[in-house]
């Protein structure tokens, strides 16, 4: 079973993507598509190629063969600077371990994404504060990552990912490093974002996360898509 990735509505399209790191093959002829507004979960055992898929779509890595197109841009035709500008404009990323800059307070961590585009500091901070407020961590604006809880850190990371209004939000095990309560909060956040129209692709080991947040599930094994299914979101 394959998705209708050739549809004009596909915001992400992979065509016969292979990726190998020497002997082990990470991706083996993956073709799939993601439509705008979808929330897609990718699941599979460790080493099956889930994170490699995310790297390909984010332009953090290049396929050995095949094409990756995101929002109409063929990533294979972009150089490193082009890929950086693509990520800046189109992609927001959320990581399992948050990846916040330890030396910067929450507000500056979020504002950073806009400042790199050349946005004035005051404007970037204003937008960052709005986002922190929306995500319920405005009070922690001046706190440093080391003093925040795991859930708060991930909310700050989500705010940073949303800073430049990305067309695609990529999440790599977003609840993997959180306790169950914080995990629930982040799940709710992702659902809200998707319901507001944010396209979401998440990689997870957690079936609960997939069932609660995703409308479609792609299952991976040995670098291939082995099954796709539509999900009814759990309450």
């Amino acid at each position: 079973m394959t998705s209708d990735y050739s549809s004009d509505q596909a915001i992400v399209r992979l065509d016969g993507v292979h990726k190998s790191y020497g002997d082990p093959v990470a991706l083996n002829g993956v073709s799939l598509g993601i439509r705008a507004g979808e929330a897609v979960a990718v699941m599979g055992p460790s080493g099956c190629g889930k994170s490699t898929l995310l790297n390909m779509i984010a332009g953090l890595d290049r396929p050995t063969s095949g094409t990756v197109t995101v929002h109409g841009e063929d990533l294979g035709e972009l150089n490193e600077t082009g890929l950086a500008l693509f990520r800046r404009r189109r992609i927001g990323m959320i990581f399992q371990f948050f990846n916040l800059v330890d030396d910067l307070p929450a507000l500056d961590n979020v504002a950073l994404a806009a400042q790199l585009t050349g946005a004035p500091t005051s404007q970037a901070r204003k937008r960052a504060l709005e986002l922190l407020d929306e995500l319920g961590v405005a009070e922690q604006r001046d706190s440093y990552p080391a003093t925040l809880s795991g859930g708060q850190r991930q909310r700050v990371a989500v705010a940073r990912a949303l800073m430049n209004r990305p067309v695609l939000l990529l999440a790599d095990e977003p609840t993997g490093a959180l306790d169950s309560r914080s995990g629930e909060q982040v799940m709710d956040l992702l659902i809200d974002l998707n319901q507001m129209g944010q396209t979401l692709l998440m990689v997870t080991h957690d079936p609960r996360l997939a069932r609660r947040c995703a409308s479609r599930l792609i299952e991976f094994a040995d670098g291939r898509v082995v099954r796709e299914s539509t999900l009814e979101r759990a309450a």
Partner: peptide
């Protein structure tokens, strides 16, 4: 790790 994150949010090689 910071460099990776900065690149992931769009810091160009030149930056």
């Amino acid at each position: 790790r910071n460099l990776g994150m900065l690149k992931s949010i769009g810091m160009t090689p030149r930056q």
